[in-house]
Structure formats: C-alpha cells, structure tokens
Write a protein that binds this DNA or RNA. Structure first.
Lengths: 162, 162
DNA sequence: CTCCTTTGGTTGACACGTCAATCATATAGG
DNA sequence: CCTATATGATTGACGTGTCAACCAAAGGAG
C-alpha cells in the first residue's frame, strides 16, 4: 500500500480537534481585540504599529521597514497608516535620501495612546489567555505554536502551489 | 503579600508564548482561508454556512436558527447571506408561519460548491495543521483549546465587564 | 543620456465584521 | 380593541484585509 499522506479522510478526533482549535483561537483573537477597543479605543493593528514605532530610533520608521518588522503587506500598512494619520496617531513624512520613500512618525498623541493602552492590554492577555492555562499547558501551547509556525513557514517557502 | 492575579507584569516567557500563539494561529487561519479561496473560490464563512444548510432537513433553515448554530451575530449572517445570495449559493424565502421570519435555502449551485470544496478543504486541514503535529501535540492542542474555550465562555457569562 | 527594470508606496474595488439604528410582525397587558 | 414591548431580520456606516493596478523615483545597461 503506497497510501500517500493527506489522502485519507479525517477521523472524528482529528476533525473535532481542528474545529475546537480554529474556533477557539478565533474567539480569543476577537475577545482580545474587543478588550483593547473598549479599554483604550484602539485596534490590535493600531497597537502593533504604535509599539513598533515607539521602539524605533527617533520614533520613526520607513514604511517598508515597518511593514517587514510586523509582517504586513505594504498595501495593508498603507491603508492602516492612512486611518491612523486621520486620527492623529501618526504622521507621514518624506524620507530623507529617497524621494520615493515615506516615513511614519509617532505623534505625541500616538505615544499617549500607546501608554494608555499597554497596561490594560497586558491585563487582558493575562486574564483571557495566561490565567486559563496551567504552566504545563502554556508550555504545550507554545510548543504547538512554534511547531505550527515552522511548518507553515516551510510550506510557504517550498509549496507545491504558488 | 496579597498580590492579586493579573497585577504582576508579564514575564518574557509569558509574552513570547502569547505572541507566538496569537500570531501563528492567525497565520493558520489566513493560510486556510487562502487555500479554500484558491481551491474552491469560496470563503471560510461561505463554507460554514453551506455545510450547516446542507445538513439541515430540507436543506433550509431559519436565519436565527442558522446564526445560533454557527455562533454568528444576526447582522453578520444577514450581510453574508446577502453576498451569498448574489452569487447564487443560497436563496431566501419567507418563513411559513411567521411573517417576520426568513429562511435560507441551499441552491443546487450551493450544493455543488460545497461538494467541490470539501475534499480540498479537508486536504488543506491535514496539510497545514494535522501534518505538522505529532499525536501528542495534537492532543495537547486540543486540550489547550478546550480549556481556553471553557475559560472564555466562563468570562463571557460572568464578566467583571459588560 | 535613454531605456528598462526594480523598488517604494498609494489607490480603488471589493469581501468581511461590528455596531447602532431601523422596520415589521408577534405577543402580552390594559 | 389598542398600545407597549419583544422578536426576527435588514440596513448603513465604518474599520479592516486582500488583490490588482498604478505611479513615481532609483539604478543599471547600452
């Protein structure tokens, strides 16, 4: 029998495991986003951008560099920066030395928003995620996530598709 | 020391575990959605709705019942059904016995779309998720997800907020 | 210098999700 | 019967994400 991997149907257990995993992680994501929004009035995307900018020298970064740092597509970042700029959280400036480039600069308002959101955000991470799990479960969750991450990265680099 | 849970800052390990978990599960979600889209031209939301309808008696369901079954807000379902109806995957009919009600009915086209997508979808679940993990890791993933799900449900029922 | 390709970034169209508002029908209370 | 409220569902506004198209400046080859 030369049964290839992936040819056999899913078992009940496999399907149930998949379902609870994918649905629960989605619930977690959405719960966290809701907390951030109601506690601090920003989205998880805002938070990610603010955090990255706040740690950059001069609290400014080239768009492409920022996109790489947070693993976003250029277009997504461009749209998001547009919305954040409208709210005064960041500002855009032309990049010195490359007239194509744009820099995103953290505003005072952006710094304030990040400062206000950090503690509630950490609190929510603890309450929604860390508090739920035993140390062993947390370690297992990390192991599973790291394994999955490497697996997905490997598929992404050498796919039978794309 | 009456240090309350949730008052202490996150450790490096906790933060790293959180980050890899939340980011990887998001990657997984998006990878799966991409496969479903490119293999079968439907979204994960479409799949969920088609599957539920296909298992319902008469392949039709009341909107509210469908929303409950797949744990969606009414409004979300209404928008989604509108998009699916435009593509011919489902059709809406007035509910017998309650003139407020609407029923979503699976069309032939919808059945076909579900049939076409099932095998590639299962294949993608195996390839992206199941293949990555050892049986022990899969069991651990399920355990973590179930624990989290119960934790989130408990918070949802008896929150210090909302 | 001129053409060509690459790089950096924006834009428009569209799918998706949430929230608040709306509307019509059902149903209970008087 | 009449009114108040609850229920079933839709709508509009808006933030978010992806894809493809686009535009401008940079860099290299001739």
């Amino acid at each position: 029998m030369t049964e290839r991997k992936g040819r056999t149907a899913l078992t009940r257990t496999e399907l149930d495991s998949w379902r609870v995993f994918i649905e629960t992680t989605e619930d977690l994501r959405s719960a966290l986003a809701g907390r951030l929004q109601s506690d601090s009035g920003i989205s998880t995307g805002d938070y990610r951008v603010l955090l990255e900018l706040s740690e950059a020298p001069g609290r400014r970064m080239r768009s492409s560099q920022l996109a790489d740092a947070i693993c976003w597509e250029r277009s997504r970042l461009s749209h998001h920066l547009g919305r954040m700029e409208k709210r005064g959280l960041i500002r855009r400036e032309a990049a010195a030395g490359d007239n194509r480039g744009a820099e995103a600069v953290l505003t005072e308002e952006g710094r304030d928003a990040l400062r206000r959101s950090s503690v509630p955000h950490f609190h929510a991470i603890r309450e929604l995620f860390l508090d739920a799990l035993t140390p062993e479960q947390l370690a297992a969750a990390r192991d599973v996530a790291e394994t999955l991450r490497d697996h997905l990265a490997a598929l992404g680099r050498a796919p039978g598709r794309g």
